[in-house]
């Protein structure tokens, strides 16, 4: 007799599920993930004059501009005893992390359709690679930030004591990363379907910068309009980041919890939407 037929182990259906989250499959493609991260670095800095130094130059130049425009010309009060250079650089580094991660993940479909339409692999690998790339860049910038901080302590007699909030840093980074990933994923699906919304994203991000405490501290916002900034789930994270690194910031547990809940909610929405839509979108783009 013929031995019992071996089971057919996989199945492709006409319907895709919201909950089709196959973690072992993603893990089996981890080498692709690392290669994609490596590719980002290699491709971005090949045939450039300064190479990877751009990772530092870009925030440095932005910082110089901000110090000049917002501090010297307009005179935005930053309060406290922190030198403007450190104040702005801290905000810029975290903002860049959010901004670059978000804009990279929101282009997941648009920029990779030529690969997605030719070969199957778990699509989440691509946005994950974007986030990891941005995270590495962020780490390099943070290291540079610490160098600047050390400079101010040694040569400018800046009094700085490490406070307990430094231990909240991993949480801040995680929440910022997850918010940018999930909002980016949601927009990657939406803009693949409705292309014109891509323009909207740029404006949205620009507006968001102004309601995030990057160029001003939350404490400098007038009481009666402070709620606008506090509505932004990123705001407490930026304040906490400064509090941890520079010892100055306004953080309340309530708003921090609000950010975390926002993160969980958006992450769920993003993964469900992405699972449901990612194979359908290939026909649409």
């Amino acid at each position: 007799m013929v031995p019992a037929e071996k089971k057919l182990t996989w199945q492709i259906d006409a319907k895709s599920s919201y909950f089709d989250f196959n973690l072992p499959e993603i893990i089996s493609y981890r080498h692709l993930l690392f290669r994609l991260v490596r590719k980002e670095f290699l491709v971005n800095y090949q045939q450039t004059l300064l190479g990877p130094l751009w990772i530092l130059f870009q925030p440095l130049l932005t910082m110089v501009t901000y110090v000049f425009v917002f501090n010297k010309i307009i005179g935005v009060p930053i309060g406290g005893k922190t030198p403007p250079v450190l104040f702005y650089f801290t905000g810029i580094v975290l903002w860049n992390f959010f901004n670059d991660s978000f804009s990279a993940t929101s282009k997941t479909f648009r920029d990779n359709i030529h690969i997605f339409s030719k070969v199957y692999f778990p699509r989440l690998i691509v946005p994950f690679a974007s986030i990891i790339t941005q995270f590495l860049r962020f780490l390099i910038q943070v290291a540079f930030l610490i160098v600047i901080l050390a400079y101010f302590m040694v040569f400018k007699n800046l009094k700085f004591t490490v406070n307990a909030y430094i231990f909240a840093m991993p949480l801040v980074i995680l929440v910022v990363a997850m918010i940018s990933l999930s909002v980016g994923l949601i927009f990657s699906v939406i803009t693949a379907k409705y292309r014109d919304l891509g323009n909207f994203i740029d404006i949205l991000v620009r507006v968001l910068l102004f309601v995030t405490p990057v160029i001003y501290p939350l404490s400098a916002v007038k009481e009666h309009i402070r709620w606008i900034v506090q509505l932004n789930p990123l705001a407490p994270l930026f304040e906490l980041f400064r509090l941890g690194l520079l010892g100055e910031g306004t953080v309340s547990p309530f708003y921090l919890l609000y950010s975390i809940i926002f993160m969980i909610f958006s992450l769920f929405t993003a993964l469900l939407l992405f699972n449901k839509q990612s194979s359908k979108l290939i026909d649409v783009i």
């Binding site: 057919l8 996989w10 199945q11 492709i12 259906d13 339409s117 070969v119 199957y120 194979s279 026909d283």
Partner: peptide, 25 residues
């Protein structure tokens, strides 16, 4: 493309066993 999981069928299903690799280009 359907068997390679790149696009979804409108109706019907594909079942199988083992790892698939596709060279479509």
């Amino acid at each position: 493309k359907i068997i390679s999981r790149i696009v979804q069928p409108t109706q019907g299903q594909v079942r199988g066993r083992g790892k698939i690799s596709s060279i479509l280009e």
